[in-house]
């Protein structure tokens, strides 16, 4: 085992925008790669988390699989971080929360404009939807929050370097945005 800091990342009910923004640290990725080793993440394609130091969670919790993944991260990561608006308050997916689930499914798959062969998908491999989209802190304990839609590359960089170098992470005013 290398003594590098292990980082895992995932996107639950998110759009991968936060991951794209993370990659926007550009050439600083090389410096980061000297300090950290990626575990489960879309960057590595590792399917399950092993023991990690930091877990970055993008997106809220909209289905049963999201709950399993989130719990796996919480179990394996010493520090769990909510990344982006959706993980913090459900974000845009949570705008369905005041509409009953059945109505949402009918609108998308039965009555929607241009729908052919209308049927609600029910393949057993599809994770079941939850009644609402939940912020991750309503499911597991969260240690840090990085707001933004998405948080800028500088937010990721500042936060991770603070944490890796043993400082209490702190974001200056201009890096904190909810939009």
């Amino acid at each position: 085992m290398s003594d590098k800091i292990r980082v895992a990342t995932t996107s639950l009910a998110g759009c991968f925008g936060c991951h794209m923004s993370f990659l926007d640290i550009d050439e600083r990725l090389l410096k980061l790669a000297e300090l950290v080793e990626f575990d489960r993440s879309p960057i590595t394609d590792i399917e399950h988390c092993s023991d990690c130091d930091i877990g970055l969670i993008e997106g809220g919790v909209c289905n049963a699989e999201n709950v399993h993944v989130l719990r796996e991260f919480r179990k394996n990561c010493k520090i769990l971080v909510a990344v982006g608006a959706c993980s913090i308050n459900g974000g845009l997916p949570a705008m369905r929360n005041h509409i009953p689930l059945e109505e949402c499914l009918n609108e998308a798959y039965i009555k929607g404009i241009g729908v052919e062969n209308p049927q609600i998908p029910n393949d057993p491999e599809l994770p079941l939807l939850l009644d609402k989209v939940y912020p991750i802190h309503e499911i597991v304990k969260v240690d840090y929050y990085l707001p933004g839609c998405p948080p800028s590359a500088d937010v990721f960089w500042t936060f991770l370097t603070d944490l890796i170098e043993g400082r209490e992470p702190s974001l200056p005013y201009e890096l904190v945005h909810y939009d």
Binding site: A82, G90, N97, K132, P135, H137, Y145, L146, L171, V176
Partner: peptide
Amino acid sequence: VAYYLAMKDNHFPHFFANR
């Protein structure tokens, strides 16, 4: 005000009120 108070999360469970 939330930025000024360095609010990073919403802490409480959301109502998701129907408005």
